[in-house]
């Protein structure tokens, strides 16, 4: 967990690591809950980034459509 906002790739990697750790059943019960919460947080962050990217793409595509030569 870095102090600054992680990049999409960093967040995605951390999320996947958490899932793998949970699936292997290595974590203690309390830790599992903490990991789960962190995982949900990372998921929200990733989805937010993707939504923003998609919005931008659609916006550009629309603008491109309007300036078609």
């Amino acid at each position: 967990m870095s102090a600054t906002e992680p990049t999409f790739e960093e967040a995605q990697r951390e999320l996947e690591q958490i899932v793998e750790r949970l699936e292997r059943g290595e974590a203690g019960l309390d830790e599992a809950i903490t990991l789960w919460e962190r995982g949900e947080e990372l998921y929200e962050l990733c989805v937010g980034r993707l939504d923003a990217a998609q919005g931008k793409i659609e916006e550009l595509a629309r603008r491109a459509e309007q300036t078609r030569l």
Binding site: Q12, L15, V19, L22, W36, L50
Partner: peptide, 20 residues
């Protein structure tokens, strides 16, 4: 990217119950 994140999320959702 979205597919991958959603997939990870699905696994995350199942993981705590699985762990219990």
């Amino acid at each position: 990217r979205r597919e991958r994140v959603v997939q990870a999320h699905d696994r995350l959702r199942r993981a705590p119950a699985l762990a219990v």
